[in-house]
Nucleic acid binder design. Structure first.
Lengths: 268, 268
DNA sequence: AGGCTTTGTCTGGTATATCGGACAACAGTC
DNA sequence: GACTGTTGTCCGATATACCAGACAAAGCCT
């Protein structure tokens, strides 16, 4: 077991003392198996999970019967089972980013009262997959299905953040560097902004599409940390710093929520 | 929802009346979601699963918090979540066919008392991935890691069962058609036997490798029904029909057990 | 062999998770 | 507006799932 998994394992120990539900034991077990990344001896689980032996043996028995875990080898090691794999595939097939993203956009928009959008890269334009208007009288969001020039938005910088300068240069049509108000975006500066967006949890652009709005975008990361999409908020340019900070927090939470690669068993 | 999933759904209804464990509710829920193949409204679950509403809402809440399921849309539909996907990937990465197959071979061999092997295709030969000797005084199994000519075994016919006659002809080296006792296998007859093996749950060859043994092989199917490997038993040629029928049953069970594509929540 | 540790099974008691049912908030329908 | 059906939340009671601990079997060392 490596340091990382050890650290996570010890972190997953429950306070102890109190009786716990079977479901919670199961969820803790799954998280632990995932953290270890390999089959774990049943006998080690009680210590690792802070659970009584009798409970662990019973839980593993039931889960193994259902195929959620498998007990392999001659030293009774436990790991995820076929059923988990099949269910995971079902998720992948049925519950794609677009559906989840759409739902999240609506949730975010309802929560914040601001216009929200889900964006993905589509050829050399940025596609608006889903939007939800805010509660402000003035609508400043884009149309669903519209294809926006990438340099016009904060999302665009995130969506291109993993490309090389050469790739970005190739991708961007010269016409797309022209903003609605006829100003022209400098391609070199744009490339720098894309590179600067790498790993950022929020990117903000102000006054690009029009003079009275700003765009806050958060990345939606795939299993390997690549930017699969962005979720963004369109705000009036004059919101207070304090309010923007709050919105930024909620936006990044939505982005994380849609992202792969992290699982939190017990969110606060 | 299609007929199949409806059938499975109704089949998953519990007798009712008695209080049930949270874990069992969860497993039933997973099986039901998988059978439906798409997000299901929470409100429909109590009827479908034969569970109280309060229980369902609580269970879904906990599972959603852990990411095992996701609640999407404005009508609160439930389906598998990110965590399920990640755990499934972990299974796929960590728990490969070889490890599971090796374990199953040992179990089968212990259960039956006969020699058992796990075989996979390796270029144009058949690889013995794992073996376990039976309890008979005379050992008639092959060496682990040995590469056997495909026409010599029942496993070979299963492993090639999805190939076209042309592919099979290309694959088989002329030398490999020569049995240990100098007899020569007819390639056309062999191709017919491969085709005949398609979809079979057991294939038997007698007296090929030597005059005193027979080979029973069962396919290990992948998620798309393709033959990924075989598990087989090597028996003396003179076992009684009744005993062979029993062994055949146990062998096919092992093959099914290793195969993808089916999940049984409650095995008998 | 004898002592010690580890692993897995089993059982009775009790803390509590599940259940039934009440309640509120909606959405249709007439 | 009144009535009906549906959806989601909440709460007290009790059946039972989880827990602690005893026990046996199997290693492992001296």
């Amino acid at each position: 077991m490596n340091e990382q998994s050890t650290a996570r394992a010890s972190a997953s120990i429950v306070p102890g003392g109190s009786r716990e539900r079977g479901i919670d034991r199961v969820l803790t077990l799954f998280a632990y198996l995932n953290a270890c990344g390999r089959p774990v001896r049943i006998a080690d689980l009680p210590k690792a999970l802070g659970a009584p032996r009798s409970t662990i043996y019973e839980i593993v028995r039931v889960l193994a019967e259902a195929g959620m875990v498998e007990v392999t080898g001659n030293d009774n090691r436990v790991y995820f089972g076929r059923a988990m794999y099949l269910y995971g595939i079902s998720y992948f097939r049925g519950n794609d980013l677009i559906r989840r993203g759409s739902s999240e956009v609506e949730a975010l928009s309802t929560l914040t009262g601001e216009s929200s959008e889900l964006c993905m890269l589509n050829r050399n334009r940025q596609a608006i997959i889903h939007t939800h208007p805010g509660s402000r009288p003035m609508r400043i969001s884009s149309e669903v299905g519209s294809q926006i020039p990438i340099p016009w938005t904060a999302s665009g910088r995130l969506l291109l953040s993993q490309m090389s300068p050469a790739e970005i240069r190739d991708l961007i049509q010269p016409d797309d560097l022209i903003l609605p108000d006829r100003r022209v975006v400098d391609i070199e500066g744009f490339i720098e902004e894309c590179i600067a967006a790498r790993g950022k949890s929020v990117v903000i652009t102000r006054g690009l599409i029009n003079s009275f709005s700003q765009c806050l975008a958060a990345p939606v990361l795939g299993i390997d940390g690549e930017v699969q999409a962005t979720i963004c908020l369109v705000l009036p340019i004059d919101v207070s710093d304090g309010q923007r900070a709050v919105l930024q927090e909620q936006l990044t939470a939505s982005g994380r929520n849609l992202s792969m690669g992290t699982v939190r068993t017990k969110p606060t």
